[in-house]
Amino acid sequence: MNALEASQETPLPVVRVEGVCKSFGGIQALNDVTFDVPAGSIFSLIGPNGAGKTTLLNLVTGSFPADSGQVVFGETMLNGRKAHERVALGIARTFQNIELFGSMSVLENVLVGQHVKTRCGFLGAMARLPRTIGEEREARNRALELLDFVGLLDSASQRSTDLPFGWQRFLEIARALATGPRILLLDEPASGLNAVETASLAELLEKIRKSGVTLLLVEHDMNLVMKVSDRVLVLNHGMKLAEGSPCEVQANEAVIAAYLGRDKAGPGC
């Protein structure tokens, strides 16, 4: 909780979403949503299916533009910036349906993640100057470190899609971390994981936060959300229903009525 305390002293959000609206052909996916993601926190977005969680995440990563409102990253206005430019700024993501590079090895996937951290272009690759060789070696070492970090070092040379499902999620996280993000957006990282894998995911999330990366989580697994989150935002029908600490959200009558249900007594409350 050190990070949270620090953020209360200096309220500098990593991501600030202000009055964002988005509709898809008459369906209002997001309606005037505003929130701050404090630096160094684990921030969760929850809500029923179709509440607009993934849409919100896609607006932050730049998959499509918002109809109105703005997304600010640190002090940079993100409106109008393309997805790949936002990665270079420090916004990384994973996907709800894992999207690994299937033709590549585990290690290569993480190497692709370092695209924005390396410089070599067409001519540099063909000339293969000492600079390029050095850069490649560094990238490789960093990739191995990251694989060690998520516990996949032993599988480095395996083909990525041959990994067990749960490990593929961890690889996707390592690959996203390779871009050197300040914030990492995870779209339902626990879906499809068993209890043991979810527990090690929770540990990994804590480890990532400790390394200085802010986390924005879209998740349905309430045990995980309530356990790791510093702040929780509840969306319903594209609107903000509630926001607060896990305990506050769990005690909120509107949230219980719309999403959590009566019997959901969360941990630590």
């Binding site: 790949h84 996907f95 999207e99 690994l100 590079f101 695209h115 070599c120 293969r128 490649e136 996203a176």
Partner: peptide, 26 residues
């Protein structure tokens, strides 16, 4: 040489998943 480089990996990444490739900053 090009294929076995940062650029070559990025090309193969586009082939595998364009969405994921752009989420890597490509």
């Amino acid at each position: 040489r090009l294929i076995n480089s940062r650029i070559g990996r990025a090309l193969r990444a586009i082939h595998d998943s364009e969405r994921a490739a752009s989420s890597m900053g490509i």
